[in-house]
Design a protein around this nucleic acid. Structure first.
Lengths: 228, 228
DNA sequence: ACCTGAACACCGTTCAAGT
DNA sequence: ACCTGAACACCGTTCAAGT
């Protein structure tokens, strides 16, 4: 009773058969090379030696193609051990791994605000996140809302990290502090007394340091804030 | 010793003179009507009865135009009272107001991940945020990193709210809970035990309720997590 | 059913020429 | 110095025609 998906007829010597997999493969190659901006329907088609219209057999539109790319990317984030002593460390590591993975593919994290991820890999990650929160002794509603903020933070930090990647500023997978002159130092103290006063502290610390601190803030906050 | 900015010569009967202000005005009108996607250089030019090339006298490129729009939007967020008893309530209100304001202009919040806001209105808001944190008894480094996470959260929540606006789901400035069927209820319990188990809780609560809880999480977390 | 060239309705930005 | 039409190099998506 199964209906087979569309089958390509390009089994000729020169061209290989198209399929959703080959389309996503080609898109993934472009994504890795040029970021999401490089993944246009026309360029994907070109890479497959065909016209853009051909892709619409395997993918509804560019948005669906991007959703498929997202889930591939999610699939490369290692799931945490389901059991173990330190849930907090496992949670932190999972979040850092997710942010680092998103930072590798410029333009992808931003789009995740739009899509509640429904791919199997993304769902598995969310489920794992919830599993870790269960070890924290939180009630059901708190766990549910907590996974929401944590996911939002992952996507937000991933988006930020991506921009650091594009600008060449160091981020998660690199060391070294930020370079360049302090943009807050020159601000008028009259108008912006607090920014002026804290200009040193505002630029202190690497992206990784700040991210680790932020994750601590979130976890401490969740532990201290019962929902309901 | 001042150099005057470019002055338009279109002081003829039919067309009014162009200036950066008129360009941003026209862009703002389009933004309000159609969101940021509606603000193309060509459409702005059309609204001003000219060609797109004319705009480049008053604005370096579309990115700069968007940055100018952002600061206009920031200017409509009321600054908190500089003194008062309850810093925590003032901080919460400021964050909710900022998120609500961003939710009114689809497409804008997303772009704020890219830009460290340098407009006068955005800087004033950040300065005010830091001022409120000073009342919380936090050390200097904690205040600096705190304003970072809070700003990141505002932009992230604003981006999310925007999508709710676009989809017609209720959000900050509206009441009522979310409609539609529960997307987690039908998930296989074998593969996603936690998502399946918490499907009720995952969809419980309005956007405003969740946002308020998240802000509480952040504030509690910041108070519990000293930087340095 | 799959594949495709051509077209439709758009983009941002640049450039040479006009005033 | 300001303004502009036209062009350049792109987009996503649709459609009619081919196999």
């Amino acid at each position: 009773m199964e209906r087979a998906g569309p089958v390509s007829r390009r089994n000729r010597p020169a061209k290989s058969a198209l399929s959703q997999e080959t389309v996503v493969d080609a898109a993934m190659t472009l994504l890795t090379a040029d970021g999401l901006d490089g993944v246009s329907m026309r360029r994907v088609a070109q890479a497959l030696d065909t016209g853009p219209a051909s892709l619409y057999v395997y993918v509804q539109n560019r948005d669906e193609l991007i959703a498929l790319l997202m889930d591939r990317i999610a699939g490369d984030i290692p799931l945490p051990a389901t059991d173990g002593a330190d849930w907090r460390e496992r949670l932190t590591d999972l979040m850092l791994a997710a942010i680092a993975q998103l930072s590798r593919y410029p333009g992808v994290a931003v789009r995740m605000f739009a899509t509640i991820p429904t791919g199997p890999n993304s769902l598995a990650l969310t489920d794992a996140l919830l599993g870790l929160l269960a070890h924290a002794g939180l009630n059901r509603q708190t766990r549910a809302w907590a996974v929401d903020v944590l996911a939002l933070y992952i996507v937000a930090a991933g988006t930020e990290a991506t921009l650091h990647t594009e600008r060449g500023t160091p981020h998660l997978s690199q060391g070294a502090p930020a370079p360049g002159p302090n943009p807050f130092a020159g601000l008028p103290a009259q108008q912006y007394p607090n920014l002026h006063d804290l200009s040193e502290e505002l630029t202190y610390g690497s992206f990784e340091q700040r991210t680790r601190w932020s994750i601590d803030v979130l976890i401490n906050g969740i532990l201290a804030t019962v929902a309901e």
